[in-house]
Design a protein around this nucleic acid. Structure first.
Length: 820
DNA sequence: TTCGGTGGATTTTTT
DNA sequence: ATCCACCGAA
């Protein structure tokens, strides 16, 4: 870029700048024109449409730095929201690199962390205390499970997870039980039960002084709406709000941002009871709402399943009239071949603004395809290839393997261990979801928030104290009779009418909890020492006999559990070191909100394994996208949901665009699931990639034409990729193996190699006329009758009752159907 | 109350 | 294949 001398058409809000050098000139170095515009724009609303790899993070951090440098904002006036804690950490890091310590005082965090911060301050306003617990999805599920049982809702076919996801969806729409009940069909007994469950769940949370994940957002919105003066204090504080990954925000998050960007004082209702009206001297722009910057890419929206609403970004200009829009389309990450493939695939999504990524780094290598006989075979290919790449000078830490579902990681792990390839699984089975860790944390919660009955119940009989269902119920009854909490009931073991042994057990538990409380939450008002949390945790684990019980066990897994607990204590010590003032509540907040995916890249020296969802926002020199099969990507479950297959395509797009130099797409002909071997078909997405971009080491046709299905991954040792030039799929060549004579170069990228052909062209039934009563035939589901057609245009959805497989919803435009 | 066995369901993605 | 809920025996 050589346009550094072009005049900027920028009017800094903070007053006239000196002619000549801008104070943020150095921040613009190396940026292209649109990127500069995005950094320097000053105004109410800015939408940055940032394609994959277009330098979005760089732009965002520089924009923040620029706001500070030009004195358009104080650090405390900035609120930057990212999707993960990791992204927040990186952003903070990069901003301080640009402008130094002034980064202190900014709020850079996730939606959830920011909301917790607000809720902790304001909790007392609406019936919670500062030390509220945060329920993760496991906790919510446990609670809902209990309620489902109590309400005998299972007789209506309700499952805990079903109820949970419905509640979550509703909360994401800012609905509560009451508002839902108003629109629900309350003559349906199942609906009535559900409403009761929902209400009961919410009451339980309130009683436990707890918020679930969704509440963290939703309750802040309620808070702001119910207490305008509280909202105003945040509106006055945050003058610049920046939101990353805006395409993945849900309605509650959208509403939160709307609340925050309102002009202060704008929604003060007629003051009830003459409460002190706040008069502010007209600070220059006190009447304006905060300036809002959102960054996103609708092609990378992959969280609709959990309530993300793509319209938040597509309709941004309508929501914020006069918004400036900046498009970043130049890609600085990948080779043109990779981008062409990505563009080709994503262009199959209709109903999207056309956008083409481009780069000036050149074509690069072809995309390598490989088909294994089994998932192990596929994994062996990946392992061999990582080895070859490392020999070619690429560090393991610059390689990543993606898959659609977590369960696919197993085969990869097995083979990686066998092949001695160092790897790290990102965000898989979570450390904080292990039973022993949850137990330990429940002990801490019992101390920090005694109102949380769930936590106390959880630890009641861990380790074994002979307390079973009967005793638990007795405690609950006693607590209810006396009007005290479940926790306090423990202090009166003798009154419960249970055996002496059990009484002693309860009394002991109560004493240990009390001792830990004295240590971690001194009632004298003085601050506990920084080590209090770690010490208290250790005290709880040893004095309750928890660790001893594990050590005494014969189960070999229990040894690992003890190690995990040691690890947790170490985490607590580390926390104390980083936060000398940190309380037990702060610690619990951190572990509730920090996920393992946030572990900064201590993946040094190892290959990263993760789901495609986790991969969002990351990039690697070499990327393996595995399991590129129908029913996996696109996932089978998505097929029935309107918009599902398109979201899957975006997910695949996200995976592909993570690669800088080399991209591998692999699949297996057979895949074992539920212990059964099933035949897999190549994903339709493969056929959306122009054949000339790919080089198949072993195409689906190669594998199938030999009819071989035996897996040889576990004993075959192959030649490295160096010896495997271009094996053609002749049929008599044997397999890709060590003992083969390379055939004359013949690329097997021909689409005819696909053994299981799936329609290469995307169907377009856009103009099919369909109405209730029509009969149709579906390629997979057979014949059925249309009940109802909803939606408009490209989004028309047919609700069909199939003769064989029951009711399905189909997107008419693309479903493989014909009218009969 | 605990333990062990059996049968059934289970796997989409995550702050 | 693996995890969980449920059941009957100690």
């Amino acid at each position: 870029m050589t346009d550094a001398n072009q005049p900027y058409i920028v009017v800094p809000a903070g007053g006239p700048q000196q002619a000549g050098v801008r104070p943020d000139e150095d921040l613009l170095e190396g940026l292209n024109r649109p990127q500069r515009d995005a950094v320097t724009f000053r105004g109410q609303a800015l939408l940055i449409v940032a394609g994959a790899g277009s330098g979005k993070t760089s732009v965002l951090t520089r924009r923040v730095a620029s706001l500070l440098r030009t004195k358009d904002a104080w650090p405390s006036q900035i609120l930057a929201i990212t999707f993960t804690n990791k992204a927040a950490g990186e952003m903070r890091e990069r901003v301080s690199q640009l402008i130094g310590d002034r980064a202190q005082g900014m709020w850079i965090s996730t939606f959830h962390s920011a909301c917790v911060r607000i809720l902790r301050r304001e909790a007392e306003q609406f019936g919670f205390t500062k030390s509220f617990t945060i329920y993760d999805s496991g906790d919510s599920r446990a609670l809902i499970k209990r309620l489902v049982k109590e309400h005998e809702a299972d007789t209506y076919g309700m499952t805990p997870s079903g109820v949970m996801s419905r509640i979550s969806k509703l909360k994401n729409e800012l609905a509560d039980a009451e508002s839902y009940a108003r629109s629900a069909n309350m003559t349906d007994p199942a609906e009535r039960i559900f409403v009761e469950l929902f209400a009961d769940y919410q009451r339980s949370l309130q009683k436990a002084n707890a918020f679930d994940f969704d509440d963290l957002i939703g309750q802040v919105v309620y808070l702001f709406r119910a207490f305008p003066q509280v909202a105003d204090s945040y509106r006055r504080r945050f003058r610049h709000i920046l939101v990353d990954e805006y395409q993945d925000t849900n309605h509650a998050q959208y509403a939160l941002i709307r609340e925050l960007t309102r002009p202060p004082g704008s929604d003060a209702p007629p003051m009830a009871g003459g409460g002190g009206m706040m008069i502010f001297d007209a600070e220059p722009d006190a009447e304006d709402g905060a300036s809002l910057t959102v960054v996103g890419d609708s092609d990378q929206s992959i969280y609709a399943f959990r309530g993300a609403d793509i319209r938040n970004i597509t309709e941004f200009e309508r929501d914020y009239p006069g918004a400036k829009v900046v498009l970043l389309e130049q890609n600085y990450r990948s080779t043109q071949n990779i981008l062409n493939a990505a563009n080709a695939v994503i262009s199959h999504n209709f109903d999207r603004k056309d956008k083409k990524l481009w780069t000036d780094v050149g074509e690069g290598e072809k995309i390598i395809g490989f088909t294994g006989y089994s998932q192990h075979d596929e994994a062996q290919f990946v392992a061999d290839e990582t080895e070859a790449l490392r020999k070619a000078g690429i560090d393991y830490s610059q390689m990543a393997v993606f898959y659609r579902t977590n369960s696919q990681s197993r085969a990869l792990e097995e083979i990686f261990i066998r092949s001695a390839v160092p790897y790290k699984i990102m965000g898989g089975t979570k450390f904080y979801e292990r039973a022993e860790i949850k137990d330990a944390l429940a002990y801490l919660v019992a101390v920090a928030n005694p109102a949380d009955e769930m936590a106390v119940r959880r630890i009641l009989n861990k380790p074994r104290r002979g307390i079973g269902d009967v005793t638990e119920t007795a405690i609950a009854r006693y607590a209810a009779d006396e009007g005290i909490t479940f926790r306090d009931a423990l202090a009166n073991a003798s009154a419960l009418g249970v055996g002496p042994k059990i009484q002693a057990g309860i009394a002991h538990l109560d004493a240990v909890l009390a001792e830990a409380s004295a240590l971690m939450v001194p009632s004298t008002g003085e601050l506990p020492p920084p080590t209090a949390v770690a010490d208290g945790l250790q005290l709880l684990l040893s004095k309750t006999g928890y660790t001893d019980a594990l050590r005494a066990s014969r189960d070999p897994q229990d040894e690992a559990r003890v190690e995990n607990l040691d690890e947790l204590v170490a985490v607590a010590r580390e926390f104390a070191r980083n936060n000398p003032e940190g309380t037990i509540v702060d610690f619990l907040t951190e572990v509730a909100l920090v996920s393992d995916a946030d572990d900064l890249e201590d993946a040094s020296g190892s290959v990263s394994l993760m789901t495609m969802h986790t991969a969002k926002g990351l990039e690697y020199d070499a990327v393996f996208v595995t399991g590129v099969e129908e029913d996996l990507i696109p996932h089978r479950i998505s097929a029935n949901e309107p918009g599902g297959p398109q979201e899957e395509r975006r997910l695949f797009y996200v995976g592909v665009t993570r690669a800088r130099k080399r991209l591998y797409l692999s699949l297996a002909m057979t895949r074992a699931q539920f212990g059964e071997v099933t035949v897999a078909m190549p994903s339709r997405f493969l056929q959306e990639i122009p054949t000339e971009l790919m080089h198949w080491r072993q195409s689906p046709g190669d594998v199938n034409s030999r009819g071989g299905t035996q897996s040889r991954a576990l004993n075959a040792r192959r030649g490295g990729p160096g010896s495997s030039g271009g094996f053609g799929g002749g049929g008599n060549t044997g397999r890709y193996g060590a003992d083969l004579v390379p055939l004359p170069r013949r690329e097997s990228s021909d689409i005819s190699k696909f053994a299981n052909r799936i329609p290469a062209k995307v169907r377009d039934n856009g103009d099919m006329e369909l109405g209730p009563g029509d009969r149709i035939r579906h390629d997979d589901f057979g014949e059925g009758k249309v009940d109802l057609v909803t939606g408009e245009g490209a989004k028309r959805v047919a609700h069909v009752r199939f003769d064989r497989v029951g009711a399905k919803k189909l997107l008419i435009k693309i479903a493989p159907i014909e009218k009969l």
